[in-house]
Simulated assay, not measured.
Amino acid sequence: MPRALIVIDMQRGFDDLEHWGPTANPDCEANVGALVSSWERAGEPIVVVRHDSPSPSSPLHAGAPGNALVEVVAAVEPALFVTKSVNSAFYGDPDLHAWLQREGVSELVVCGIQTNMCVETTARMAGNLGYDVTVVLDATRTFDLSTDVAGLGTVARTAAELMAATALVLQAGGFARIATTRQVARA
């Protein structure tokens, strides 16, 4: 069965650190590029997912310049292009799950932005749907996060802490294996 590379939300709007805050893993885009190149050389399917925020003030709004894909992903001719307005790529258009089933794809390799949001949500759903899922952690990135939580007060985590927590939860929870670009990309 073929495997597919799922590239999530690699959009220019995530470079707006005034909006998102401090980030981790500056090598994310280069690592996504290495994965894309590996998949193109192998002739394996690549699925590109773009987040179209319904909020007019979001850098990812469909009318905003930040909605555009980063260069390394914009150059890809994907087997499937999915747009979504929620965290999971499985709730996008066209239907990712239906396409994967039609194509006989059972193994997914997931990368992109944000590690603990859209990447994690998509990986969890994929695992629950029965796919063999690998998340390439060094081909993801996220941002520092802080919010008030009932019963806990203000909870804050750095982007690096969030990436580590996502890796722990996905792998220990049986949703996905965690790997590096070097482990996954074909030479």
Rank of each mutant, 00 (worst) to 15 (best):
M10L: 14
T154H: 13
I8H: 06
P26W: 07
P54F: 08
V72T: 14
E29S: 14
V136T: 04
S38N: 05
A62E: 10
E77Y: 01
I113P: 10
A62W: 04
G127V: 00
T181M: 08
A159L: 07
A62V: 14
H19I: 09
V155H: 11
L69Y: 07
I8E: 02
F90P: 05
S38Q: 03
T121R: 02
G43N: 13
P26V: 08
V155C: 06
V72M: 12
A68Q: 15
I6R: 01
E161H: 13
I113D: 08
N25M: 07
R3Y: 02
A24T: 13
G13E: 08
E40I: 12
Q171E: 15
A42F: 00
M1K: 11
T180K: 06
Y91M: 15
T122K: 02
L129N: 12
N25T: 09
V105Q: 04
G153V: 08
V76I: 05
T115I: 12
V47M: 04
N31A: 04
R182I: 10
A126S: 05
V72Y: 01
C28F: 11
A179E: 13
A165D: 13
S37F: 02
D138H: 02
G173H: 11
R41H: 10
N67K: 02
E103L: 09
Q171H: 15
V105P: 01
G112A: 03
N87D: 05
R177A: 14
L145R: 13
A156F: 10
G63C: 04
Q183M: 15
V47P: 01
A176R: 02
R186L: 10
T140V: 15
D9V: 11
H97F: 11
G151W: 00
L60E: 09
M1N: 10
S146P: 00
M117D: 13
V110C: 09
F143H: 12
V109P: 00
G151N: 03
V36Q: 03
D93G: 05
D132I: 04
W99G: 00
R41I: 00
P65H: 03
M1P: 10
F175I: 09
T181L: 03
A98Q: 13
Y91E: 12
T115N: 09
T158Q: 04
R3Q: 07
N87Y: 05
H61R: 01
A89Q: 05
A179H: 11
V73S: 10
E77C: 05
E71W: 01
P22H: 11
E77L: 03
D52F: 14
P45W: 03
G153P: 11
A126H: 04
Q183F: 11
E107C: 05
T121F: 08
R12A: 12
T134P: 01
G92Q: 06
